[in-house]
Amino acid sequence: MRKASRLFEIIQILRLAKKPMTAAAMAETLEVTVRSIYRDIVALQAMRVPIEGGRGIGYIMRPGFDLPPLMFSIEEMEAIVLSLALLERTGDDELKQAAKRVNQKIAGAVPAPLRQAMEGKALYAWGSAAPSPVGLDLGLVRRAIRDEQKLTLVYRDELGRATERMIRPIALIYYSQTANIVAWCELRQAIRNFRSDRVEHCAATQSYFKGEGDELRQLWTSGWTERPAAVS
């Protein structure tokens, strides 16, 4: 989790807490070290966020501090509820957990009538859910797309032949049965789609393609009128 996201999460935790929260409890929730939480608390206090407390006794947020209110219409809230429900149909476990956290945050911030719209269970996303890929962490792929970081794959084609690839991931497409990684394949020297259910192993590298992501996405989309990228 990046520091900016972590600072926001700490504020949200303290805003919704009914009692002082220890650094250890927050560290467990955010899956970071206790030392990171201590540093983040100091940083937030330096930004005049009214956090009080200390090591061993926990931290609280003084009353009166709040983030800008969320103002949604009923239709906008229904759109959010249905969008979050659709994430349950992906094989991306990290996104499914994120959807649950979004629901909790919105429920804690919106007025009662809109909260009822979220909790009413009147909207459903029906259909089969894509299984989580065995050899691939889709969260790792999304982070590599954001950071423009190269990945290595062990990939099997439709005939079962395995190859090792170095790719520059630029997009993820979620289908009902699987997810496809769109990437520049250094072996094929072209844009290729990689089905997540055919990836046997995936790992991040120490190599990056900084500044190339937008150009590669333009190359990818420019071919849409001709034919989709091949599945490698």
Rank of each mutant, 00 (worst) to 15 (best):
A46C: 10
A46Y: 04
A46L: 07
A46G: 14
M47K: 15
V49G: 10
V49N: 05
I51L: 02
I51E: 00
E52S: 09
R55A: 15
G56T: 09
G56Q: 04
G56H: 11
I57M: 12
I57Q: 15
G58Q: 10
I60L: 06
M61R: 00
M61V: 01
M61D: 02
M61Y: 00
R62I: 00
R62N: 10
P63N: 11
P63Y: 02
P63V: 03
G64Q: 06
G64A: 03
F65Q: 06
L67Q: 02
L67N: 05
L67M: 13
P68C: 08
P69A: 09
P69T: 03
L70H: 02
M71V: 07
F72G: 08
I74L: 10
I74C: 09
M77P: 11
E78V: 05
I80N: 09
I80E: 01
V81T: 04
V81A: 05
L82C: 07
S83N: 07
L84R: 02
L84G: 12
L84Y: 00
L87N: 12
L87M: 09
L87F: 06
E88V: 05
R89D: 08
G91E: 02
G91M: 03
G91A: 06
D92Y: 03
D92P: 13
D92H: 09
D93M: 11
E94G: 13
L95M: 15
K100L: 13
R101G: 10
R101W: 02
V102R: 04
V102N: 08
K105L: 15
I106P: 10
A107H: 13
A109L: 08
V110R: 05
V110S: 05
P111G: 06
P111D: 01
A112G: 07
R115N: 14
Q116A: 15
Q116E: 15
A117K: 12
A117Y: 01
M118E: 10
E119F: 13
G120T: 11
K121F: 11
A122C: 11
L123F: 04
Y124T: 14
A125R: 00
W126F: 15
S128H: 13
S128M: 13
A129K: 15
A130K: 02
A130R: 03
L138V: 03
L138S: 05
G139K: 00
L140K: 13
V141M: 04
V141L: 07
V141P: 11
V141E: 08
R143L: 03
A144L: 00
A144Y: 00
A144P: 13
I145P: 12
R146N: 12
R146H: 11
R146S: 14
Q149V: 04
K150H: 11
K150V: 03
K150N: 10
L151D: 09
E158T: 14
